[in-house]
């Protein structure tokens, strides 16, 4: 009797797909959770360089120093704009909460000499005229989309899952994304963004990632806007983990004072 019940239970588990997990084949949500919860250090410092290229091939560059900390309930990020000269000394701080609260965001404009609270209702806005939106640069929670594994294949020499993610809400700029996830590293290698007509309009390619201080870090990526023939390369340099940043660093005082020297 006990043996029969066990067989039945195992059969049911396989039918509903949970058995897949037991045997090492996760579902789409689990893959994306593995990416989201991939160890990335409690705090990090990095220099970012953005190169914007338009359809005529002319380029513009932006330089940023970024600090981030994960305090458990809140992810805090502080960015200092170093170049071009007309935005130099501007800083931007965001506090993102693990609960349903909206982000808190502030900007320090040196011309105004004032830290200003700004609305966080801008996730689809482009960041500094680049092809990245604020949402692209943040950490999108897996629960914000429904995920389906389309197939498994080798991409750039990495065994990968190909996942289709459809937003649960209706306030995103895209109707779905398709992302390639490296199986053993839980890093996204490529992401295609689709519009309401089902056409890809934006593609993110990861051109370099490396292990720094024991954490996998994407250090070079290219976002291409297919509609307007424009692209933005984002490079990350001087990546450092666990440099002694504390919660108090993410403050109005530091926004005015500038990056660490």
């Amino acid at each position: 009797m006990y043996k029969k019940l066990s067989m039945l239970t195992l059969t049911l588990l396989l039918l509903v797909g949970v058995g897949g997990t037991l045997f090492g084949a996760p579902d789409g949500l689990e893959v994306m959770e593995n990416v989201y919860y991939r160890p990335s250090g409690d705090e990090m410092t990095a220099d970012l360089e953005m190169i914007l290229t338009n359809s005529r091939g002319s380029t513009r560059e932006r330089s940023i120093t970024q600090y981030s900390i994960d305090t458990g309930d809140v992810d805090k990020k502080l960015m200092f704009f170093l170049a071009p000269a007309d935005v130099k000394d501007t800083s931007f701080m965001s506090w993102s909460y693990t609960d349903a609260r909206d982000d808190d965001q502030w900007i320090y404009l040196p011309a105004l000499r004032r830290v200003k609270r700004i609305s966080s209702d801008s996730k689809n806005d482009r960041f500094m005229g680049s092809d990245f939106t604020y949402d692209d640069l943040g950490e999108r929670h897996p629960e914000e989309d429904r995920h389906t594994i389309l197939r498994e294949e080798s991409y750039q020499g990495e065994p990968s899952y190909v996942i289709e993610s459809v937003p649960v809400g209706d306030d995103d700029a895209f109707s779905k994304t398709v992302v390639w996830i490296a199986k053993d590293k839980w890093i996204g290698l490529k992401r295609e963004y689709y519009n309401d007509k089902g056409e890809a309009y934006k593609v993110l390619n990861i051109d370099e990632f490396k292990k720094i201080d024991g954490y996998w870090v994407i250090t070079d990526m290219l976002m291409e806007d297919l509609d307007r023939d424009h692209s933005t390369r984002l490079k990350m340099d001087n990546v450092k983990f666990d440099t002694g940043l504390t919660d108090s660093f993410f403050s109005e005082r530091q926004m005015k004072r500038g990056p660490r020297r």
Partner: peptide, 11 residues
């Protein structure tokens, strides 16, 4: 003071 009411900043 300043605070947010949804997507609006009140000052």
């Amino acid at each position: 003071f300043s605070t947010t009411l949804g997507s609006v900043v009140l000052r």
